[in-house]
Nucleic acid binder design. Structure first.
Length: 724
DNA sequence: AGCTAAAATGTTTTT
DNA sequence: CATTTTAGCT
């Protein structure tokens, strides 16, 4: 196999096929290329079967891309490797083996909303009020336990006489029982239960240990204890484990990621080989210098510095706006300028935000300015109300024990069944130890009122019918039947507002997703569960479409592993970035995580970074004023280019009176006048001839004929053209 | 039970 | 400011 396109370190990583290997890969150091080459090398040179390879990536999209690249290198065999996220891999195992630990194979996955509903219900039953036990916090505590592989028993050790913690552990215990009763698992269970399964049954563990002779884990710095243990168990037999990571890019410690996993790799595997990839192929020297100048303020890191052949590069632009509207306008203007001049296309840009709440202003401004964009993160498609409603039906069909989904389905549309009646049937089911569906059919015996009782029986009978259908007819037909016969469609048709219209559109889209699934799956109960699991693990990051010519708007977290020619980072303000919570926490470690996030954001850029902030900021209906982000101050002034037209102004002296002056275009003074027939030189397209002139002043446009590209329309004030 | 209107509350980051 | 939760009414 030809390895000549790899550098020395990359090649070393590729040909070290036996034993533990740690690849410390800096941002943009060709990590994916190295990983895919290494897998291709195993397949081609060492004749390893693709079935023996497990590759764990951070998103399903990354897994798909990795597979594609491997297929490019070695052909169809690449299709057969196991590649996916921790969650998708564990789910695949659980689907086959979960009965071993007392769940049924048709289990469903609870998302945060389902989790929240369950917790609220438990709090009510326990007479604990939500003020002292905010469900969010309880869920968080439980999540932390699970990430540490602590079951309720194990969690007791952490009470230490703390009343709140004691209650939290009690709640955890009940929550876990209820999940099992509902035959449901939450996100963290997916990992924890797989570990429990492996620990409970050595035969099953051996099966997978034997199978996976070669294991890869990407983004190892962001694995938590449960994931770490899982990999350690799986790799124990063959010990051919290759992990890739960068401590400077660890940005998920808030959800349990443990940096020690990467730092202790050498302790876990004393014979580990370590390869460092420090040459950066992505960014210019200016960007790397800026990124380094920020990250070097962290004390909790191994010092290292990326280098590149791409000397120089453009300075980091920096703009101060009056308010977020103007900040968004600035972004639009900069993008438009470069697109109209022909230097870039929309797809070259990303706008990175610290929080999803910042998306809206940007989005609205993009719409106003006709900038095409895609948004990743924020409100997910599958968490929309109408989608969650139909999913509740499907989940209850797949798993009749799922009372959370059943409760949602039974009350949408309204059937005259209220909380009181619902509680009665639940109690009746528990007391007689019968499935909830049977209890519903026997509503009268549960002493539910006549009207509500009749509705319950009707509902339950329908659900039983749907269940029978689910194994026989394709999903899209099942969906259609459910929407019709449950009265859901009728309910939507009666709502005549705009909302209802958009709900219907979303359901249409869901319908086509389901139809697409049907194309390569036979109707069966298993495939319904399979579909629901796919939906549960779906993130819109997986849908990132780089073929569309659009600007990408996303969080900095979402941008991990991606790259763009030009990156905007908006909201460079204290309290936004770094986030107010990490400032308030006083823990230096939280600030260091923000700083790593800044490092990740900066190193996404290939050619240019454009930072911005605004002087006034709206939060909860009040105007706030934030200081410039400390990270701005950490970038040396000689790397920054201040674009602000009011740069001499003090940040706090601009309260009132300042009107929105139009922003002056940067190269106004340079704009030359041309006539038809003049020869002009364009930065990107070379020499062309002016063949048309339209408009005047700021709107002056030239039509220029280029030999290669044909006739292009250029806005005079932005176009990078000179007389030739 | 279920609607409407008033009141309260809240934002990191995500598999 | 938005969105969600609750109280009060029918």
């Amino acid at each position: 196999m030809d390895l000549s396109n790899l550098n020395k370190e990359q090649r070393e990583a590729v040909i070290t096929t036996k034993g533990p290997l740690l690849i410390l890969a800096g941002a943009g150091s060709g990590k994916t290329k190295t990983l895919t080459s290494r897998i291709a090398y195993l397949l081609e040179e060492e004749k390893v079967s693709p079935y023996e390879i497990l590759a764990i990536t951070f998103t399903n999209k990354a897994a798909g891309e990795m597979k594609e690249r491997i297929i490019d290198l070695v052909g169809f065999a690449g299709e057969k490797i196991w590649a996916g996220t921790f969650h998708s891999m564990c789910l695949r195992i659980l689907r086959m083996e979960i009965e071993e630990i007392g769940y049924k194979p048709n289990f469903v996955i609870y998302d945060e909303t389902d989790q929240q509903s369950l917790l609220k219900q438990i709090l009510k039953e326990q007479n604990l009020d939500e003020k002292s036990f905010p469900p969010r916090l309880v869920a968080n505590t439980i999540s932390n336990f699970k990430n540490e592989l602590l079951d309720p028993k194990g969690a007791k050790r952490y009470i230490n006489g703390d009343f709140i913690m004691e209650k939290n552990v009690e709640l955890y215990e009940i929550y876990q029982e209820k999940l099992k009763q509902n035959n449901a698992v939450d996100f963290d269970d997916i990992i924890m239960l797989t570990v429990q399964l492996f620990k409970a049954n050595s035969e099953i563990l051996s099966k997978y240990q034997n199978r996976f002779r070669y294991i890869f884990v990407d983004e190892y710095q962001d694995t938590n204890h449960a994931q770490y243990t899982l990999i350690k168990l799986l790799a124990a037999k063959h010990r051919n484990i290759c992990v890739v990571g960068d401590d400077d890019q660890s940005i998920y410690r808030w959800r349990g990621a443990d940096i020690q996993n990467i730092l202790n790799f050498e302790k876990d595997y004393p014979d580990a080989k370590i390869v460092k990839l420090e040459q950066n192929y992505r960014s210019t020297q200016a960007i790397l210098d800026a990124a380094y100048s920020v990250i070097k303020f962290n004390s909790e890191r191994k010092d290292k510095r990326l280098w590149t052949d791409k000397k120089g590069g453009e300075l980091i632009d920096y703009f101060t706006a009056l308010d977020e509207e103007e900040e968004a306008f600035f972004v639009s203007r900069e993008i438009k300028k470069r697109v109209v001049s022909g230097e870039n296309t929309f797809a070259d840009f990303a706008v990175l935000c610290r929080t999803t709440a910042q998306f809206r202003v940007i989005e609205e401004n993009f719409i106003k300015n006709g900038i095409k964009y895609q948004i990743f993160g924020g409100m997910k498609f599958y968490s929309r109300k109408e989608i969650k409603d139909v999913l509740a039906y499907l989940k209850a069909i797949a798993n009749p024990d799922d009372r959370i989904s059943l409760a949602r389905a039974i009350s949408t549309p309204k059937r005259g069944i209220g909380e009181a009646s619902w509680n009665k049937v639940n109690q009746y089911a528990d007391e007689n130890n019968i499935p909830i569906t049977l209890a519903l059919l026997d509503a009268a015996a549960a002493s539910v009122g006549a009207k509500a009782g009749k509705a319950m029986v009707e509902f339950a009978e329908k659900m039983v019918e749907f269940q029978a259908l689910s194994a026989e007819i394709p999903l899209h037909l099942l969906l259609e039947t459910v929407l019709e016969q449950s009265g859901y469609m009728q309910m939507l048709n009666e709502e005549k507002d705009v909302e209802a219209m958009s709900k219907k559109e979303n359901l249409e889209e869901f319908f086509s997703i389901v139809t697409a699934f049907d194309r390569d799956h036979e109707p069966s109960a298993e495939n319904l569960s399979h579909f629901l699991a796919e939906v549960a693990l779906y993130t819109d990051l997986d849908n990132l479409n780089d073929k569309e010519n659009t600007v990408t708007i996303m969080t900095m977290h979402g941008a991990k592993g991606l790259e763009f020619p030009i990156v905007f980072i908006v909201g460079m303000e204290e309290n936004i970035f770094p986030h107010a919570r990490s400032i308030a926490s006083m823990a230096e470690s939280e600030m260091e995580e923000e700083r790593r996030l800044c490092y990740v954001a900066l190193t996404r850029a290939k050619e240019k970074v454009i930072l911005s902030r605004s002087l006034a900021h709206m939060l909860y209906g009040r105007t706030n004023r934030n200081m410039p982000s400390r990270f701005l101050g950490e970038i040396p002034a000689n790397l920054l280019n201040d674009l602000s037209y009011r740069k001499k102004q003090n940040s706090f002296s601009t309260s009132n009176g300042l009107s929105h002056k139009p922003i002056q275009p940067q190269n106004m003074d340079k704009a030359e006048k041309f006539n038809i027939g003049d020869k002009v030189a364009h930065n990107k397209w070379g020499i062309g001839v002016v063949v048309g002139i339209k408009g005047a002043g700021d709107d002056l446009e030239y039509k220029v004929a280029f030999p290669e590209q044909g006739i292009k329309t250029l806005i005079a004030k932005y176009a990078p053209i000179k007389r030739a």
